[in-house]
Amino acid sequence: MKEFTYVITDQEGIHARPAGELVKLAKEFTSSVCVLKEGKKADAKKVFGLMGLGVKKGMEITVQAEGEDEEAAAAALEKFLKENL
């Protein structure tokens, strides 16, 4: 399993549009991808779950990828988060 943490810097947090884009990206990989925030866990391939975490600016999230392409999935998501959130 690949795991990394990231602190959200975007003013609005993971709101609708970036959540949708993140889901689109996560779906490109066969690995399961999860986002954890303060003990709550959401499937990164489901937009409602992800938005439901209520991630705001300054919060730390943990991203876990598990499966055949976990390396690539984690790298792609980290890049996306840094560029967009």
């Binding site: 609708a16 549009r17 949708g20 889901v23 689109k24 499937d43 391939k45 489901k46 937009v47 409602f48 779950g49």
Partner: peptide, 16 residues
Amino acid sequence: AAIFEVHQMMLEDDDY
């Protein structure tokens, strides 16, 4: 226009 794209993604949500 992005809101309509978000709506499309919501429709693809497995949980829903």
